[in-house]
């Protein structure tokens, strides 16, 4: 009886508590978000983006790797259609995040789901799904509160870091070698993920393919080579699994 009476208050308290839990979990990610944001701003400025363009990209797209991909291809003079196709392809992993989060939050209010979609960055997904799987019975509103806590702790700093990077980038001397900073950033983004034979093979095929197909106009070789790489990785994975089954 008393439980039923105080339920509304308990709910609000639980949701507030979950929000701050998410916020605390998200804070340490600023150590990664801030340097990447700074460099994103510098690279965009180096490519000829003005402050308004850099900030529009940083705020509207909110996906560093694909924004960098777009900038890299634009400076290679690829047609806009190819730029959009390749940069969107970099974000396809987020469809996987969305599918994995759906059972937990797809019953929430539409505006909250739309907000969660806009804010779906890698660590928001990773932290939230770990939290949901440890507390599967939590109410949808609490799950969304955790998610919002994570992103509010770490997304505003992305905007500020990009802004500072863009302001500083315009003043950087060209002799510093920062023309290559974007490449260094890309390498560090994917290198830690290359673990296990299938991933190594996927990367090797994609790299060789891209170099061999560099003659194809409009940078289309990148997408074709990436598809070959994915196929090679998936086939290798299947072959290894088949082998494991024979052993068992």
């Amino acid at each position: 009886m008393t439980q039923a009476l105080t339920k509304g208050g308990d709910d609000a308290a639980l949701i507030r508590w979950t929000f701050w839990q998410g916020f605390r979990a998200g804070l340490p990610f600023n150590a990664a978000v801030i340097p990447f944001g700074l460099l994103f701003g510098v690279v965009a400025a180096d490519a000829g983006f003005d402050i308004l363009q850099t900030m529009s990209m940083s705020i509207l797209v909110l996906a560093g790797a694909s924004s960098l991909t777009a900038i890299e291809l634009l400076t290679q003079n690829a047609p806009v259609f190819i730029v959009l196709l390749t940069a969107s392809a970099v974000n396809l992993r987020m469809a996987m995040y969305s599918a994995s989060l759906a059972p937990h939050i797809s019953k929430g209010p539409l505006w909250q789901r739309a907000l969660a979609a806009y804010l779906m960055v890698d660590h928001a997904y990773a932290l939230s799904i770990a939290n949901y799987e440890s507390k599967p019975a939590a109410p949808v509103r609490a799950k969304l509160a955790y998610y919002l806590g994570v992103v509010l702790a770490s997304v505003p700093s992305w905007y500020f870091a990009c802004l500072i990077g863009a302001l500083v980038g315009a003043q950087m001397p060209a002799s510093l070698g920062l023309d290559f900073a974007g490449v260094v950033m890309f390498v560090s983004l994917f290198a830690p993920a290359v673990r296990g034979l299938p991933k190594v093979i996927a990367m090797a095929v994609a790299v060789c393919g891209s170099l061999l197909l560099a003659w194809i106009p409009y940078s289309l070789g990148v997408l074709i080579a990436a598809c070959f790489g994915m196929l090679a990785g998936a086939l290798c994975e299947a072959a290894l699994r088949g082998q494991a089954r024979e052993v068992v």
């Binding site: 392809a89 983004l189 990367m203 994609a206 080579a225 994915m230």
Partner: peptide
Amino acid sequence: YVPVTILPAL
């Protein structure tokens, strides 16, 4: 396999 193929190819 998207991250380990598109970014290196690019």
